[in-house]
Nucleic acid binder design. Structure first.
Lengths: 235, 235
DNA sequence: GTCCTTTTGTGAACCGGTGCACAAAGTGAG
DNA sequence: CTCACTTTGTGCACCGGTTCACAAAAGGAC
């Protein structure tokens, strides 16, 4: 096998492409289950909800894995995308904050099924520490550094209240973790080289509300005036 | 109030800007609580985690609400952004699927605090129907259309298993809802004019894993040729 | 009033990403 | 073999969004 992936894959897959690879992977897994051997860019694009030119360009960043006139080999493409995303290795994930959201995440099947293993649940509340959730014992936040070190945790999910998130992030970073998925509604400040992805449930709703308002405005005519902004942050 | 915001606000705030407005709003609320009367674009930008030129351009799409040499009036800006996002009105939200995630969402404080009111919880599982969660009675999915109509639900949150999501979406759309927040890991197909936002927890982790792999690769030297695609594996 | 300082609002260059459209590469029939 | 057909991979034009950098506007000192 030749190394002809010179400029294409060697450096830098566009961020937008990376964000879509998991989508393709999911569609491909569905096809593999249904026994399809090959798939065209058109069919895969439809299944993933994107346009086929974009899909082809995305895949071309990984290398030239298709066959003209035929399409892509489903199994081979699954392997290539998985490898590119780093899903061929086992990732130990720790979830900090075992409130409603933390519990939901711990039980979420989508994690385990893709090379992610929830290796620890931590919380500050003595009431929660010791509970068994999703086959794991909830440990006290004091154990954070020890747990990260001993279990090789490389990704931390923050599901704490907003006020606690920054200090937990600081400790986690100090312990050597460089990838954080943050569900707390705060802007975390972390050193260069630490990746943070933020999921903010209320922001998504606010964006929907904006568009919904536009749609109804167009029919009725005008906005209203009232209400103010309460404040409450907790997960 | 005059309608002289001709081209600036009259039509089309960039999507990227809309997605950041909730961020600014949150930062501003924090500042209002701390008693700040005005804020410069620089300070607000830092608090929201963006650069100040971008923030100024974003705000300029709403109108010219700042004062040169001074900054922005915190209260006034909060009002303007809230109004623009449609948060000055009350939105009735229904959550379909009361598993771990649905429960977490029902209890999520961030919704209620911003003009969103969880008006209904629905599930297909008779085991769950009748439960009381977050002060609400879980109703059977058969009631979906009636509940939407009677309670004026305009936004639906889908937290069902993947297999059920499309058929629930179809019913919800048929009932007149045009805004859906989808947590199920499937690509929904809906008619023109229906807005869908998707939150996919496992995709976020996969993106993190990609970057994490890059970081560790860089230190260890990257993948060897043998790891590219073992010849032993047949296609 | 003039001058100096601060900070907004925006023109313009730049950049990453999208989508069209087509040549190149493959398959299969005859 | 040639011809017809399929589907990939990509050059290129386009577009939304970001960033720079600065003129314009406001306030304060005098």
């Amino acid at each position: 096998m030749i190394r002809r992936l010179s400029q294409a894959r060697e450096r830098g897959i566009p961020e937008a492409t990376v964000a879509r690879l998991p989508l393709y992977l999911r569609a491909l897994n569905g096809m593999a289950e249904r026994g399809l051997a090959t798939v065209s860019s058109e069919d895969l694009a439809v299944a993933a909800g994107v346009n086929s030119a974009k899909l082809r360009k995305d895949l071309s960043h990984l290398g030239s894995y298709g066959t003209r006139g035929v399409g892509y080999d489903v199994e081979y493409l699954i392997y290539q995308i998985s490898r590119e995303l780093g899903l061929t290795q086992d990732w130990a994930v720790a979830i900090v904050g075992v409130g409603n959201l933390g519990r939901a995440l711990a039980n979420y099947g989508g994690f385990v099924s893709r090379g992610f293993r929830v290796a620890a649940l931590l919380d500050a509340d003595p009431e929660v520490v010791g509970d068994h959730i999703a086959g794991l014992n909830v440990e006290h936040i004091d154990e954070l550094e020890a747990v990260i070190r001993r279990r090789g945790v490389s990704i931390v999910v923050l599901a704490t209240p907003a006020v606690a998130a920054q200090q937990v992030a600081d400790r986690v970073v100090a312990a050597g973790v460089t990838s954080i998925l943050n569900f707390a509604p705060v802007v975390l400040s972390v050193p260069e080289g630490v990746d943070i992805r933020k999921v903010d449930l209320s922001i998504e709703l606010q964006i929907l509300a904006f568009h919904e308002q536009r749609k109804t405005d167009r029919m009725t005519g005008g906005p209203t005036m009232a209400e103010e902004w309460p404040e409450a942050v907790d997960l």
